[in-house]
Design a protein around this nucleic acid. Structure first.
Lengths: 177, 177
DNA sequence: GCAAATTAATGATTTATTCAAG
DNA sequence: CTTGAATAAATCATTAATTTGC
């Protein structure tokens, strides 16, 4: 490839010289989007091969291109939605960033609901379930923090401070443990 | 009048008295998912109460809703995985992994079925992966139709017409081959 | 009008999580 | 507790849009 990517080299994907990356034709994109909208989000290997065979009628294409396309499309769909929710969040000044929640490592899982079978039914009246162990920092943070929520915005908090300056007004005074 | 701003309200469950069922707000869902991914799979009764108190700031909610949410979420997680495994076996126990590709450096082709390992890397090179039969209805459907087709937005099309009459009219022949 | 320069999209890789089998 | 299989998120890299000055 000559230094300055010339027009010739960009011509479609038949890349005589081996274009660096797949460049889908409008037909291919249309078909892929149709499939995606139709509900196909993560095609199997078999499906990928079939799609590839079909789309190759409209231009050079490989299985991996199809694979990547779906991966990226799905991921960016999610990303879009997440951004909207984030915006919504910030607009309403809510809680710590989604990232900090999402990435929290935190193992936890000590709950035992074995005796909670009929919990739902009795929910409003009595709670015979007593197992606890609320040292989950995430939980703590989420349950406690309310207004501030500055925390980290990007790096997953390995160890967050458990309590914010103010212990959250009257959340649920009956803290076992 | 913020058109977009109404989303939250619409989803929220401020519902006119006696709403049939809980309808979580985006904030609630995000917080729940954050907790879930943070490691909380089966909250204890106490945790549920705390979560409920916390989430009630963003919309009407009851303890049982939280309880059910976690139950369902966990169950559907497993279900999803199980389905994949099932599909895998039904399809012939061979290829469902087009993503485990780059994890397998793929040393050599033993000469038989080992060729499916590194799909992405070898994608263009060797496709000796069994030519599985295309009986996949979804695929078929998807590959055929291309015109706007909205299908259902939720349920993946089980069985639709298999072949279109025309193989995609050249829409934009701007792509040289 | 036209390219160089800049920005937005999107294809391709890498890295982290997740579930569950051993 | 460790590890395999699959995925999703984050990131890198290149192409396409667009802006800009001439």
């Amino acid at each position: 490839m000559s230094a300055t990517g010339t027009v010739v080299e960009r011509l479609s994907n038949s890349g005589s010289g081996g274009g660096s990356r797949w460049c889908p034709t409008p037909e291919q994109v249309m078909l892929l989007e149709g499939m995606y909208r139709g509900g196909l989000k993560t095609p199997t290997a078999t499906q990928i091969q079939q799609i590839t065979a079909r789309l190759s009628l409209y231009g050079k294409i490989q299985g991996k291109n199809v694979f990547y396309w779906f991966q990226n499309h799905k991921a960016r769909d999610r990303q879009k939605i997440r951004k909207k929710l984030m915006a919504m969040y910030q607009h309403q000044r809510l809680l710590p960033s989604y990232n900090s929640l999402y990435y929290h490592p935190l193992p936890l899982q000590g709950g035992d609901m074995s005796s909670c079978k009929n919990m739902v039914n009795e929910w409003n009246v009595d709670q015979t379930c007593k197992k606890v162990m609320c040292d989950c920092s995430l939980m703590t943070v989420m349950l406690m923090d309310q207004g501030t929520s500055q925390y980290c915005t990007r790096v997953p908090p390995k160890t967050l401070q458990l309590f914010p300056t103010a212990p959250a007004p009257t959340l649920n005074p009956s803290q076992p443990q």
